[in-house]
Nucleic acid binder design. Structure first.
Lengths: 149, 149
DNA sequence: TAGAAGTCAATGCAGCTGCATAAAGATGAT
DNA sequence: ATCATCTTTATGCAGCTGCATTGACTTCTA
């Protein structure tokens, strides 16, 4: 236990932070590299497609933004690229003529199906295999707290 | 407990992975934003300067690369920028004429000293305050395992 | 010690990100 | 209904990243 006069983080917190910075770079990079090596598009494409499949309906860019927690202008461009690649299609929004909705095309559904085996293997290789058995749950809990609020 | 026939990740691992992707983006972004709002350069600059102070001597780009786990060409350009900003200085390497060493300037030492209060506060706000008491140690352990190997 | 192979660092290019702002439509107050 | 305000999405620009390659030097082999 560390004594301190201010409200700064304790040593364990600083260590956790420093490792979070490194680990996210290393693990994200490794998973992305595996996917790319297998000829697939970047992770963000999968994530966006997955949100659409989970929702079970067309979503507006704003809804994608809320779910993926990425900046508005990056959603705009990500959707552009995915539409251009044929994975998504835009359709006019019935209730707001400023916006539109994006829906998964058949090709988009197919992308999810084809990527999952490679993606799942990458997750197991770079995350699952490195955590102690049973450790993942508590680790995920802690990460969830970092996102909350 | 999940039954499966293949060697894929279990649900807790997939959840942990998904949250790692989001949490690192959210938390890194928040800390970077705090530093920027206080008029400081990006995190990577602090990290590089910190490695130099920790080492207590000039380091070669390759050594920075190993410590920060970032790509070679990104080290090259990060050092360029930090030298241009006056925080580092290059000096010829006595044992290898291909390379050189970088050393912290007085301004660089000063940067570390000036940034730390803002940085520490940001770590506490975005990480320390969100973890349950005592949780940071196990969390850091798990992150350490992800980096290892 | 010559030559092949390896290592260290920089750079041109393309693509992605952050930021500020714009354009178009929705919403709310009077 | 009108006008100001807010919301939704797109985009120009600058800077950062990944990738492939190059140039310079070192190391290894014989």
């Amino acid at each position: 236990m560390q004594l301190h006069k201010d409200d700064g983080p304790d040593d364990a917190t600083v260590t956790a932070w420093a490792r979070l910075v490194i680990a996210s770079r290393v693990v994200l990079g490794a998973v992305e590299a595996d996917l790319k090596a297998a000829g697939f598009p970047p992770l963000g494409w999968y994530d966006a497609a997955l949100e659409l499949r989970r929702a079970g309906r067309a979503l507006r860019p704003l809804e994608i933004e809320e779910r993926m927690l990425i900046a508005q202008f990056n959603v705009s461009r990500l959707l552009d690229r995915m539409v251009a690649a044929g994975y998504l299609q835009r359709q006019p929004c019935s209730t707001d003529r400023r916006g539109f909705e994006v829906a998964l095309t058949d090709t988009g559904h197919d992308l999810l199906a084809r990527m999952w085996p490679a993606y799942r293997a990458a997750i197991q290789r770079h995350v699952g295999a490195k955590l102690a058995p049973g450790e993942a749950a508590a680790f995920g809990e802690a990460l969830g707290r970092l996102i909350a609020r």
